[in-house]
């Protein structure tokens, strides 16, 4: 294996691990927040209205994540522009 292939392998490995860690954190937060919101009193099964709530909650939480991410990145850019650091 030449040094260029080693480099590409390392980059691929780091990206995979970083994406997995990000997905894991997102799943944890969705579970905690949507369970809390949609299932205040856990019964003997997930009712159909709870199921609807959970599906909508997941989509809404991911939309919230995307919006927070954009707002955060925009602000970081702006602060870096203003005085070279957050």
């Amino acid at each position: 294996m030449d040094s260029e292939s080693v480099k590409r392998a390392i980059i691929k490995q780091v990206l995979t691990e970083s994406n997995m860690a990000n997905a894991r954190q997102l799943i944890e937060k969705i579970n905690d927040n949507c369970f809390d919101k949609c299932i205040p009193k856990p019964g003997s099964s997930v009712s159909s209205s709870e199921q609807t709530c959970i599906t909508q909650c997941m989509e809404k939480y991911m939309a919230a994540w995307n919006q927070v991410n954009s707002a955060y990145l925009r602000r970081i850019q702006q602060e870096v522009g203003n005085n070279g650091g957050l």
Binding site: C38, C53, K60, W65, V68, Y72
Partner: peptide
């Protein structure tokens, strides 16, 4: 990128609790 993503997770969690207070009525914001 990892630090920013991790901070985004914390911010989303905190702002979700502050802003999305009523029952969920749709999958969009």
């Amino acid at each position: 990128r990892t630090r920013i993503q991790s901070q985004t997770h914390n911010l989303t969690d905190m702002c979700w609790k502050k802003c999305v207070t009523g029952p969920i009525k749709s999958g969009t914001l």
